[in-house]
């Protein structure tokens, strides 16, 4: 077993690197995170990693929290904080500078082309995310009905979506499903 400080520094360095290659969001580096935590360092079993991932998905908040939980598993609260800062910090700094550069150029001809060219790629990716989530979540007709109802309510009304989520969780808890 290595010294805790050495462990934390190693955790920070590896997650900071992941932060800079996480194109498309934190979920795109989950397979690499799994490889590091399970296969390279033997911090946890594959089953434990999968459970941590499910927990990170069922909590509110941005989807980077699988990193938090890996850090937590490895080195407690300190590890969780180090992993969280490492997975956000470098990409945040990069975005900060990129956004400044972008705001200076956005009204040039190329700036407008970049904006209108990237937008449909983004919407396509969000649609793909929706599709993949629906496929994973809708295991039966009742779950499909929950997804469809939520989608319709969220699209056509301005009702706070938390009501749909609470109703769904309530249905699940009551044993209706």
């Amino acid at each position: 077993m290595r010294l805790p400080l050495e462990l934390l520094v190693g955790l920070f360095a590896q997650f900071a690197l992941l932060s800079l290659v996480a194109f498309g969001g934190a979920n795109s580096v989950v397979p690499e995170m799994q490889r590091l935590a399970v296969e390279s360092h033997h911090w946890m079993s594959d089953k434990e990693f999968t459970a941590l991932f499910a927990i990170s998905q069922s909590a509110p908040g941005p989807n980077l929290m699988i990193a938090t939980l890996v850090g937590w598993k490895v080195a407690g609260v300190g590890g969780a904080l180090v992993a969280t800062v490492a997975i956000c910090g470098p990409s945040c700094l990069l975005t900060y500078w990129a956004a400044k550069a972008w705001d200076r150029r956005r009204n040039s001809a190329w700036g407008r082309a970049i904006a209108s060219g990237l937008a449909p790629v983004t919407v396509g990716m969000v649609s793909a995310t929706a599709w993949l989530l629906l496929r994973a979540a809708d295991l039966n007709l009742r779950l499909g009905a929950i997804s469809a109802t939520t989608a319709i309510v969220a699209y056509f009304t301005r009702l706070n979506p938390l009501w749909c989520l609470a109703a769904a969780a309530g249905l699940g808890l009551s044993g209706f499903l």
Binding site: S58, T129, W131, S147, Y155
Partner: peptide
Amino acid sequence: AVTALSAAAAGLVAATA
């Protein structure tokens, strides 16, 4: 409950798209 929550959350992302 977590399963139902995931289904609703997926529907929400579809509406956002």
